[in-house]
Design a protein around this nucleic acid. Structure first.
Lengths: 128, 128, 128, 128
DNA sequence: GTGGTCTAGACCACT
DNA sequence: GTGGTCTAGACCACG
């Protein structure tokens, strides 16, 4: 479910964020589902609670989740989540760099398309 | 030519690396073309020579460029650049993450394809 | 433990790399052992932290060590270290040159063998 | 005969030195054989005459060759060549490092011995 | 002229 | 605390 790789170059808190986003996209985490508490999550993943906390804070900032004092943390409704143009810009920049890298590694446009097809983004049911 | 953004979260030396890779893909930098010297590039970009040097060394490690002592730094032949499966693996992983992110931000598969088309990778003349 | 000779023609960062490789071969540094932090090592050896950092980064690139962000740097498992055929090629070329040199300096094959025996590579317990 | 690799990390002048030493070891260059002039050698190898000159100067310093004004440069008699302990020390240090590297790359002592056997140092007819 | 190495000291993100 | 990045400025070997 959560594939955290402590040796990755990607910060652990970002890995947690991305994992939760991915579970959401795959409808494994649905609106108003309860997330594990910071401490539970931390021991599940064998990471420092601070790290989980940082991930949750960032997810809350992005309106992906919300917290209810004394009750816990929950997934937001899809409609709650605004388009974050800054993040979009960064993501497109990242896409651009990855494609340059892939072409350098011998890929052409069609092979890139094939890879994207493989990803199975669950777009059909998609987020609106 | 070189758009270096000192405020970006991406390290400057990586920006230089990516810029050179991109110029190569667009056939603006061709095999055996001479790159600006470390010092020239540094003053062009208003960065420290060490930073440029780090970028050049990494590019050389990746066989994108080669250096001739006392003469300068040059673009490698395309055929010199072997496929690095480890880098490929990481790039595909990155592609996957970016796509998940983009769908999260409201993109669907077709819009992603459109973005990739925009990049204009100079794939037509193709590598190799 | 670490014999760094600042007057040597060999770069300090390479001396550090070689020292760590040697300590590994002698099983003084074992998998998952923690290395001194960049700063500790730097003050131990009376060199600049950047120099140690460069050595550690190269060792990481070679999969001899791995770093865990915020925690430190550790020896890799032997099995993590893939055979790098390019480095092997270079090393064999180097061996060839050294032997030619040694013969030139009056050594014969048996004396070279003796020298290699002296090195005590800890091959008995062997890698892998 | 002379394999000069302009892209190698080894300085060109050292490559020339090693080539001449190797030709000597293989008795292709015998005592009192005439070497090409600096200019001839430079154009043969497509390198800067200064570079050849530097190689010849170093070889002369090591008593491997001698120059006769107006006549040219010649190989010394084997007996002329003193054992240079400083160089010997460096060579042994180099041997040690190469062996450590090779063991790191999966070699054991016997495989190293095999490699040395392959080199065919022409030791039988040997020097001295 | 070129790139490679090193120092001194700084700031940053991550844990 | 950790490693990663960057600047400023220096010295060196090579061609």
């Amino acid at each position: 479910m959560f594939n955290i790789n402590i040796m990755s170059d990607k910060p652990i808190y970002e890995q947690i964020i991305d994992s939760i986003k991915e579970l959401s996209l795959k409808h494994i985490l649905k609106p108003d589902d309860k997330l594990p508490s910071v401490r539970q999550m931390a021991s599940m993943l064998s990471v420092n609670p601070n790290t989980v906390s940082k991930a949750y804070q960032e997810l809350e900032r992005q309106k992906i989740i919300y917290t209810v004092r004394g009750r816990g943390t929950f997934m937001s409704a899809y409609s709650e989540r605004p388009i974050d143009y800054e993040r979009l810009e960064k993501a497109l920049e990242g896409l651009r760099n990855i494609c340059v890298e892939l072409v350098h590694l011998g890929y052409d446009k069609n092979k890139i398309y094939e890879e994207i097809d493989k990803i199975q983004l669950g777009i059909e049911g998609g987020i609106k």
